[in-house]
Write a protein that binds this DNA or RNA. Structure first.
Lengths: 208, 208
DNA sequence: CGCAGGTTTGAGCACCCTCAACGAATGTGG
DNA sequence: CCACATTCGTTGAGGGTGCTCAAACCTGCG
């Protein structure tokens, strides 16, 4: 079974949101239900996407099931140009999401977006290569807070599994670190996927 | 002590190869001795560089001394555009190296280079996030072989410390994995920084 | 030849993963 | 509206991979 087939047949990945390619891409946002795929590893890569609402995960699978999420994309962000001709990653809606297709843009508009993606990937390299579990989770919370306007209350669209696969940890470790942060009074967990930062400077120091 | 000061004063980092910025960048390659810096974290980032000969490491330091090398650049490769206005990384010559400065190029020339950097960074994310020590070292050897023409004999310009900081491991672990590969007959180590791949397919399978 | 830096190897331990069970939350059907 | 199923999240016990600390060994070079 190829990765692509695995992707389509996995119980989680219900269906692709749209047919392969309406030759004149839509300018209207397309609704993508939670868990649905946007593109898959091996598919032709010829356009970009912007998140209108919701959230997207971009990841790659190993043959043995290991998964690494290379990026989350939140409202307003552009993604999809991680390859030249064909995609090397899967992209899926995390929750109910609106996606707008962008038409081929001039290079001078694409370059800043590509550079931002590069900067994010490089920052993530540091985290995965040299930070321990507590530092990774702290950095993740700070990153999410900053990408949601710097507020102390964060709404996480993704599951613990997604967070773990983004941070190179297991769900148990993510859960344990969050619990420890809560016990220390650094964060509060008012709901399953809500986090409230109580001591931001402490958290920032931890993220190192 | 700031990172920048640490960089300049560290015993390893002898000196910068050139003065801050001859306003009309040189078209001749500049010789950079082993260990010398090319640019530093926090410096203004306004040009690109191409490796004419030798090799370069691009890395970031944590305050406590941890280091993550985000990329090696070998002969012919272009680097230096990892940031918008200021560098977020250090770049140093690994060995005696020739560097050519490139002048501001149009975006449509830069974009493919940026995308290749992005693809490499994303591939490295998988390695750091989800692969064990043996897989990392195997993948590194395969990568170096492919970047040196696909030959079975690899010349490594970098030290074990550099390899470890690239792969998110310690030098001891790198050394142990190499020894184990040698004992298994998968590679030979004819010199300290030479590797000969004896069983390429085995090594490729290990790299997953 | 002697020194210094880099590399290898070993012993012990810490952090994180694995496996397992429990608890909470959401959705479905009766 | 409640019982149940299912998924997701939390917590615990134990083990393994890779790190820390330490010493010996090369190897290049003055």
């Amino acid at each position: 079974m190829t990765l692509h087939e695995a992707f389509r047949s996995a119980p989680d990945h219900r269906q692709f949101a749209w047919a392969p390619a309406p030759s004149s891409g839509s300018l209207q946002p397309v609704f993508v239900p939670a868990g649905a795929g946007i593109y898959a590893q091996g598919e032709k890569s010829d356009r970009l996407y912007r998140v209108e609402f919701g959230a997207v995960r971009v990841y790659r699978l190993f043959a043995d099931g290991r998964r690494q999420i290379s990026a989350f994309h939140l409202c307003g962000e552009v993604f999809g140009f991680e390859a030249h001709a064909t995609h090397h990653f899967f992209a899926e809606a995390i929750c109910a999401t609106g996606i707008r297709t962008l038409h081929a843009s001039p290079a001078d508009e694409l370059l800043p977006v590509a550079l931002q993606g590069l900067a994010r990937a490089q920052a993530h390299l540091l985290l995965l290569g040299r930070q321990n579990a507590a530092e990774r989770v702290a950095a993740f919370l700070i990153e999410m807070s900053e990408r949601q306007g710097g507020l102390d209350r964060i709404e996480l669209p993704m599951s613990r599994t997604d967070i773990a696969d983004y941070l190179g940890l297991t769900i148990e470790t993510v859960s344990r670190v969050l619990s420890k942060l809560r016990r220390k009074g650094i964060i509060r967990l008012p709901a399953l996927r809500s986090v409230e930062i109580a001591k931001r400077t402490t958290l920032e120091d931890m993220a190192a």
